[in-house]
Nucleic acid binder design. Structure first.
Lengths: 392, 392
DNA sequence: GGTCTTAGTTCACGGCCTGGAGGAAGGGAG
DNA sequence: CTCCCTTCCTCCAGGCCGTGAACTAAGACC
C-alpha cells in the first residue's frame, strides 16, 4: 500500500488535477458539467477554474445553450498556454516535432543519423529541439517539456538496454538535459506509440488494453487500469519473445519458438524462403508482395502467420483480459488490413470463451509516425497530474 | 484518469488509512516511526492515533528504548478489535475459518458437500459461519466480514462463470448476504491463495508478482503495483490456457497446445500414459510415484514437464516483468520441491536476459490450505482502506 | 417589462494539517 | 536524590480548503 500523507494542499492540487484533466480529455466542458463529472461543489469548481483561467492554463471558449436558463460557458485548455516537443529516436533518423497543447504539429525536423551513438543522438535531438522551437516562433520558456522515445528498456529516465542501438546503461535524459533548460522525459518507443493510440487513436476510452506492434520485430505496450504498465523494472510488454511453439524456430533473442520468429516480418519472410519462395527488394516491398501472392507457398505462409499471431493474441486475452487489443506496426497494419476478420476468428479458437467475448480487436489508427506524438504526451501527462502547476 | 474529488474528510480518512495500514503491515510501530514513514507531522499522527485508540482499532503494546530520551510507545492493531471469517468453496467441501485481526485461526469448520449446487453451498457457508462464530465465542457484531473464495470468475461479487462447479451467473454474495447481517465478499480462489501468499507467505514485500498455481489444472494470480490485477472484466490470470505448443495436445478448454495440457497434473499423467507408463491409485498418489521414478519413460516426462513449465514461466517473465514468481498448487509444490533449481535454469533459456535477471522464482510457503486465510483478508483490506471505519 | 429558469459567484463555517511551545518520561552526572 | 539533558508526545493558534446557502448574471418566454 502506498504510504503517502495527504495535506490540505494536496487536496487542492488533486482537485485542480481532476478538473484540468477532465477539461483536457473530455473536450470543452462547462463549469456545470464539471460539477457533475467531478462531484465537486459548484463553488469549488468556480473557484478552481477561476484560478486556472488567471494562470492562463484554461480559457473560455464560447457558450452553449443550457436547459432553459443562462447559457453555459465552455472551458478548454488553452492550446497555446505552453508547447510540448516529442522526439523519436530511430536507428536511421531522429525526428523531432513541436505541438501545441491540442497536439497540433507546429514544426517538424528530421535528421538522418549514420551511427547511432549516444553522443550523436543527443546532438541531433538538441539540434532538432532548437530547430523546431525556432521555426515555430515559440519562446523556449513556453515549452513545457521534451519527450524522447527510444527503442529499448528505459528505467528511471535512463536507457538501460537498447539492443538495436547497441547501447547499455546510457543516461540519456541526463545527457540531453545538460544541453537544454527544458525538462526532459525519456521512455520506450513502443510504449509511446501505444500512448498515442490510447489518447488519440484506436485505444480511446479503453482502460485495459494492449497495443500490439508487429514490424520487423514484435513488441507491445500494456495498459492496465488506465495507465501504462511497466512491470517491476520497466521491461514489461515483451510479447514478441513469448514461447508459442515449444522447441520451434530459433529467434534472434536466442530462444526457440518465440512469437517474433513466426510473425515478425523477418520471421515471416524467412519462413517463406524456407518453403521455397523467392523474394525481391527490401523487407517491406517483399512483404507487400508476399501478402498479395495468392499462390503457394505464399498463401499457406500467410495463413499460418494469422494462426500464430492469433495464438499470441489469445495468450494476451487469457492472461491480461483486456477490453481491447490494438494491432499496429507496419507489418501488423498490412496484415490487419487484409486479414483482420480471419485473425479475430482464429483468436477465438485459442482463447477462452469469456475473455474472448469481452475483447475487441482493432487496427491502429495513427499510422506508424505517431511515436513523436506519443512522446510529446509525456510532459502533458505531468501537467495534468500536477493540475497545471509548472515545473522548475 | 480517475475523476474523483477530494474533500477535507477524504483527507482525514486517507491519512487514517495510511497510518492504520502501516501499523498493520509493519508490525508494532511507535508514533515517532509513523511520523517518519508517513511523513505526516507528529501532531497529526498523535491526533489520528488517539482517535484510533479511542475507537479500539489500535492499542498500545509496550514500549521500546528510544535513542536516549523518553521511550517510544509501540502501537499495534488490536487483534481482538474485530474478527474476520474466510470460506473456501471446493468441489467436495466447504471450509470456514474464523480469524482475529492478527490472522490467528480461532475456529474451523469443514462441511463435505455432495452436489455443489448454489443452494447447498450457501447453506453450508452460512452453517459454517454460525458454527465458527459460536464455537469461538465471538459476538456476531464483532465479525467484520466474511470472505468467500470460489473457483471461477467473480465479477462484482457475483459468480459469473464457475466451470468446475457447473455454475453460471450465480449472485453468490447476494444469496449468502440474505442469510446473515455480516458483510459478504466473494472472490476467485486462485486470487485468494495468491493474496494469502502475498501478505503472509512467499510474496511478502513484492509489489509486482505472479502466484502460479499448478494442480490438476493450472492458474495464476497476478499482482501489479501492490494489488491484485483482474483485467477489464475480472478474468485475468488465465495462465494455464496460454498456447505454448502451437498445434499441440488438446486441452480440456478445447484449444490445442495449452500450458495446462502439458504441466497440469492431469496432463502430465496423461503424457506418461501415452509414453507407455502405467499408473496406480488416485491422481496425487500416481503423481508422487511418477516424480520418484527415475527410470524411463518417467524421467523424460518429468524433464519435459520442467521444460514446458519453464517456458510458461518465461512468458510471464517477458510479458509482465514481475520481481517474483511464486509457484504453488499441490502439483507445483511437489514438482518444485525436487526440481526448482532445474526449473530456474530452464526459465533462463526461454526468457530475455534482463527481466530474467530481475525475477526470483520461489515456492509457496503456506501450503494448499491458505485459501480461506486469503479470503479472510478481504474484510481486512476494506478495514485498512477505510482507515478503520466500520461498515454498515 | 416582468417572471422563470438555469449558470455561476460570494461568503461564513466547520474541518483539516502544521509549526512551535510545552509537557512527559526516562538516563546519567554529581 | 536532584538536576539536567534528550527524546517522545500533546496542545494550541493559524492558515487552507471545500461546502451549502444566499445571491447575482444572463437568456427565454409571455
Amino acid at each position: 500500500m502506498e504510504v503517502r500523507r495527504t495535506t490540505v494542499r494536496d487536496m487542492r492540487r488533486s482537485n485542480r488535477s481532476v478538473i484540468l484533466a477532465s477539461i483536457y480529455r473530455e473536450g470543452p466542458l462547462s463549469r456545470q458539467e464539471l460539477t457533475v463529472r467531478t462531484s465537486l461543489s459548484a463553488a469549488s469548481v468556480s473557484n478552481l477554474v477561476a484560478e486556472l483561467i488567471t494562470e492562463g492554463v484554461v480559457e473560455e471558449a464560447g457558450s452553449v445553450e443550457s436547459e432553459g436558463g443562462r447559457p453555459r460557458v465552455l472551458l478548454r485548455v488553452a492550446p497555446t498556454f505552453r508547447y510540448v516537443v516529442g522526439a523519436e529516436v530511430g536507428e536511421t533518423r531522429v525526428r523531432v516535432e513541436l505541438f501545441d497543447l491540442a497536439m497540433n504539429v507546429l514544426a517538424r525536423s528530421d535528421h538522418p543519423i549514420s551511427s547511432p551513438t549516444p553522443a550523436e543522438v543527443v546532438k541531433h535531438v538538441l539540434e532538432g529541439l532548437s530547430s523546431v522551437v525556432t521555426s515555430s516562433g515559440v519562446q523556449p520558456e513556453q515549452v513545457l517539456g521534451l519527450g524522447v522515445a527510444v527503442s529499448g528498456v528505459v528505467e528511471d529516465n535512463a536507457i538501460v538496454d537498447a539492443q538495436t542501438l547497441g547501447w547499455e546503461a546510457v543516461p540519456l535524459a541526463k545527457l540531453i538535459a545538460e544541453g537544454t533548460d527544458i525538462p526532459v522525459h525519456v521512455d520506450n518507443g513502443a510504449n509511446m506509440l501505444g500512448q498515442a493510440e490510447m489518447w488519440f487513436g484506436a485505444g480511446r476510452g479503453a482502460t485495459d488494453a494492449v497495443v500490439a506492434l508487429v514490424g520487423s520485430g514484435v513488441g507491445s505496450a500494456l495498459v492496465a487500469g488506465g495507465s501504462s504498465y511497466r512491470g517491476a523494472r520497466s521491461s514489461a510488454g515483451e510479447w514478441g519473445h513469448m514461447t508459442i511453439v515449444y522447441g520451434g524456430r530459433q529467434c534472434r533473442c536466442g530462444a526457440l519458438g518465440c512469437l517474433e520468429a513466426y510473425v515478425g516480418a523477418e520471421g515471416i519472410l524467412d519462413r517463406y524462403r524456407l518453403a521455397g519462395g523467392t523474394l525481391t527488394g527490401d523487407e517491406e516491398t517483399a512483404f507487400v508482395e508476399l501478402l498479395d501472392d495468392k499462390s503457394e507457398p505464399a498463401a499457406t505462409i500467410i495463413a499460418d502467420t494469422i494462426g500464430y499471431l492469433a495464438a499470441g493474441f489469445a495468450n494476451l486475452v487469457n492472461l491480461v483480459n483486456p477490453e481491447r487489443i490494438v494491432l499496429g506496426g507496419w507489418a501488423g497494419l498490412l496484415l490487419g488490413e487484409k486479414h483482420l476478420d480471419e485473425l479475430r476468428v482464429e483468436v477465438g479458437k485459442h482463447a477462452l470463451r469469456r475473455p474472448y467475448a469481452q475483447v475487441s480487436i482493432v487496427l491502429c489508427e495513427l499510422g506508424r509516425d505517431a511515436v513523436a506524438l506519443g512522446a510529446a504526451t509525456l510532459p502533458v501527462v505531468r501537467l495534468l497530474r500536477d493540475g497545471g502547476a509548472l515545473p522548475r
